[in-house]
């Protein structure tokens, strides 16, 4: 990925509707970086007053150096699981930043370079539950960017998964990685 600053600062934004688990995805990604990869990380969020619905956004800044400014300045990666999220944050991406959208939810995509994956559909197919869309998204994100190691994200997800849902979440993550691998294979051919 080209987005990395001189100090190794990577800025990731995960956005969607409340209830899609984007903040939890941010926490898991941050835990993968901090606990299992030993990096510096700051995770922040914004959300509306609603417990469900409304806009929700998590930000994760990962760096080898101490992190000063804690929020995203210009995102290296944006994962958008709703049209509103995509509309709101796509313009803040770095010039060569990576946009990942759920193609079933985001119909108007502002970048030709965007990665379009039916994330929620993939979640239902792989785990049987739409609520694992955030985990699929993490699989795609890490598969495409290696912002954290695969081992770290696996451990972080399993540590967070409620008892009895480990298998389900693992399958969702695998599916995300598979989607990323397929995309990379197509790119390499091209």
């Amino acid at each position: 990925m080209k987005g990395k600053d001189k100090d190794g600062r990577i800025e990731i934004r995960l956005a969607g509707e409340g209830g899609q688990g984007m903040i939890l995805a941010g926490v898991i990604l941050a835990e993968a970086a901090a606990i299992y990869d030993g990096k510096n990380v700051v995770q922040t969020q914004t959300y509306g007053p609603e417990a469900r619905g409304g806009a929700s956004k998590a930000e994760v800044v990962i760096s080898d150096e101490p992190i000063d400014y804690p929020e995203v300045l210009h995102a290296d990666v944006l994962v958008a699981l709703s049209q509103e999220a995509c509309d709101k944050y796509a313009s803040n991406l770095k010039k060569d930043g990576l946009l990942i959208v759920d193609i079933d939810k985001v119909k108007r995509v502002p970048l030709t370079s965007a990665v379009k994956i039916p994330i929620t559909r993939a979640a239902i197919e792989s785990s049987g539950k739409a609520i694992t869309a955030n985990v699929v998204a993490l699989g795609v994100l890490v598969g495409l960017t290696n912002v954290v190691s695969r081992e770290a994200i696996e451990k972080a997800i399993l540590a967070r998964a409620p008892k009895g849902t480990e298998e389900m979440n693992y399958r969702a993550l695998e599916r995300g990685f598979a989607e990323a691998a397929a995309l990379l294979a197509v790119k390499q051919k091209a």
Binding site: K39, V41, V42, Q43, Q45
Partner: peptide, 8 residues
């Protein structure tokens, strides 16, 4: 922002 942020 400090109250709600998560850090290592």
């Amino acid at each position: 922002v400090v109250g709600h942020m998560r850090e290592r």
